[in-house]
Nucleic acid binder design. Structure first.
Length: 600
DNA sequence: ATAGGGGTACTT
DNA sequence: AAGTACCCCTAT
């Protein structure tokens, strides 16, 4: 009897814990942590955990931590999960996994959305230099060797090189791991803002539906749009649902169910999308909208938005978890897709930024030099285009709603480690996770090895000839004055000068190479060289580069753009918003001053 | 195309 | 005059 009873209880416990696992997989790590970690908050719960269940949970947790980028915690968990006598030889899976954890723990804090690649690399180098001990460095080194198919790389590594060079090599190698510039999908961002409270649910719904409308229209051409109807509809629907939920006491049931089904049970669907090589002709799925955009991240149905923005309690949980330092992402993408292929190696997360979007696997030697970031395939161009459109739509929309700029700016400048949460790779769940995690770099060279070949001989002293002073430069090359047709705001003032209709033209005026007594300021030079018939230096005429103050709108776009595309993608930002008379360089400069202003 | 150095027009 | 915002140039 007693025995039986005990047995039953145990089973019950296990069942309960199974449920907890399901629940936690869908909603949060904290629950699991509390159940499993001795130091956790729920001793009672912990006491009820059988050893077997405990280890299972631990693996779950570890897996979850890895997926959500909690490297430091994962590192701790590692010790609890793997056998004490794990094989430390460099070829064992455990060793490799451990190595990854350590490495990631070091690198993770470096992910800062506001760092330029240069700065990121510099920081990375410094960290590698200071925070990585010799043992780890040696291992990394070895790893690079093993992970690289490139002969040059191997040659490079095999040679004796000064520490300096090694560090550079390491920095290059690991750069992709700390640069994450994946643009954040518009709707996801809206959802985040809802959570932050900077945008009301109603407004978010309006924005979302308008965006969807805008995108449809952009794709199909019919300008109809009827924003009103749509907005209204979205508003009503959303408001109702959300409010009902919130007010009613949440009805977590429904949600739970949903989460469960989505995450735990059906790890199927999904998978296909990536592989179908986005023939994209078919697909459709949701309305016409979906078929328009190849990038899955951009295709979000209203239902999904509801999930994102409407799932209040879920989001709240998320936030709470984050505050506690347990960053999770119970996101739809989590679903399985643990198919064996090519996945293991990706645990390095070494692929850079844009991989998350469409992208059929393999053939990846895409050893495209880093800076090629954007446009590398037509698919990518399409994605970019889609992003652009979305960006425009969002700009238009955001200007109508209350201004979430500060929030965005803060976000973009916060270097929040939580950033890393989104877009995590998946890996096998369950116990196999550990083993798979790192099985190798075998099949594909996806470890994204930057060939060192591009490294150049060090600073040949020549290039040091610092700034020959503007005037000299100008002198040697003549003064270039550019006229622009008045197409700006300042376009009035007709001074009777007939300039060719061309958009902008440059006219080179050879300077007298000899003895110019004094330096002329640019405007002086222009004035001096301006044909006399030009009467006065009206803004319209010479305006080529007339100083133009940045408007609030422009600043708004810029901030918005950085939030969307990431720091440094000035061209993309420029294209995504209706800037006139600004260049990507201007954007960059303006951002610099903005940063200065905000003491960043 | 971007990051950074640096000049100049403009503001205070 | 000093400081700032914008703009230009150039190496990478």
């Amino acid at each position: 009897m007693g025995d039986e009873h005990e047995k039953n209880e145990m089973m019950t416990t296990d069942l309960v814990l199974d449920w907890i696992v399901e629940y936690a997989v869908a909603y949060g790590l904290d629950v699991l942590v509390q159940a499993v970690l001795p130091a956790g908050g729920e001793p009672e719960l912990a006491a009820r955990v059988t050893p077997k269940t405990r280890s299972m949970l631990q693996v779950h947790i570890l897996d979850k931590m890895v997926r959500s980028g909690e490297w430091a915690s994962a590192l701790e968990m590692f010790d609890k999960v793997v056998p004490d006598d794990w094989d430390r030889s460099s070829e064992s899976a455990y060793a490799a996994f451990h190595l990854e954890l350590r490495l990631q723990a070091v690198l993770a804090p470096l992910r800062s959305p506001r760092w330029s690649p240069k700065k990121a690399k510099a920081t990375l180098r410094q960290v590698l230099d200071e925070k990585v001990d010799d043992a780890l460095r040696t291992q990394l080194y070895e790893l690079m060797r093993l992970g690289s198919n490139a002969p040059e790389m191997i040659a490079f590594l095999d040679n004796e090189h000064p520490v300096e060079a090694v560090l550079n090599g390491l920095a290059d190698f690991f750069m992709p791991m700390i640069s994450d510039r994946t643009p954040r999908p518009f709707l996801e961002r809206i959802a985040a803002e809802v959570v932050e409270g900077s945008v009301s649910l109603d407004d978010a719904a309006a924005m979302a539906s308008a965006a969807l409308g805008a995108r449809t229209e952009a794709g199909s051409s019919s300008q109809a749009k009827t924003p009103k109807g749509k907005e209204e509809k979205g508003k009503v629907d959303k408001g109702k649902t959300a409010k009902g939920k919130a007010g009613k006491g949440k009805t977590p049931k429904g949600k739970e169910e949903k989460g469960k089904t989505a995450k735990g049970k059906t790890p199927k669907n999904k998978t296909s999308k990536g592989k179908t090589s986005k023939g994209k002709s078919g697909t459709t799925g949701k309305k016409a909208v979906a078929s328009k955009v190849a990038d899955d991240d951009l295709v979000i149905s209203m239902a999904e938005l509801e999930e994102l923005a409407g799932g209040e309690s879920e989001l709240v949980k998320l936030i709470e978890a984050e505050e506690r330092g347990l960053v999770l992402t119970p996101r739809r993408t989590v679903a399985a897709e643990m198919s064996s292929d090519s996945d293991s190696s990706s645990s390095w997360g070494a692929r850079s930024s844009y991989e998350s979007s469409s992208y059929d696997d393999d053939d990846d030697d895409e050893a495209t030099q880093a800076p090629t970031r954007g446009l590398r395939s037509s698919a990518h161009k399409k994605t970019q285009a889609a992003i652009s459109q979305l960006g425009k739509a969002s700009a238009a929309l955001l200007s109508k709603v209350d201004d979430p700029l500060d929030a965005i700016l803060a976000k973009s400048s916060e270097a929040s480690p939580a950033q890393a949460t989104r877009k995590r790779r998946r890996s096998g769940a369950k116990a196999t996770a550990v083993a798979n995690m790192f099985s190798s770099s075998d099949s594909d060279s996806s470890s994204a090895v930057e060939t060192p070949s591009r490294r150049k001989p060090r600073a040949t002293a020549s290039s040091k000839s610092k700034k020959p002073a503007r005037s000299e430069r100008a002198k040697s090359k003549g003064v270039v004055v550019a006229w622009t047709d008045s197409d700006d705001e300042v376009s009035d003032v007709d001074d009777g000068v007939s300039l060719p209709p061309a958009k902008s033209r440059k006219i080179e005026i050879s300077s007298t190479p000899s003895r110019r007594p004094r330096r002329l300021s640019k405007s002086q030079a222009i004035a001096a060289l301006t044909p006399p018939n030009k009467g006065r230096v009206s803004k319209a005429s010479i305006s080529a580069r007339k100083r133009r103050r940045w408007t609030d709108d422009e600043i708004k776009w810029l901030i918005e753009g950085v939030a969307q595309f990431g720091h440094g993608n000035w061209a993309a930002i420029l294209a995504a918003f209706p800037f006139t008379g600004r260049t990507n360089v201007n954007l960059k400069d303006k951002w610099r001053t903005l940063e200065k202003q905000r003491n960043l």
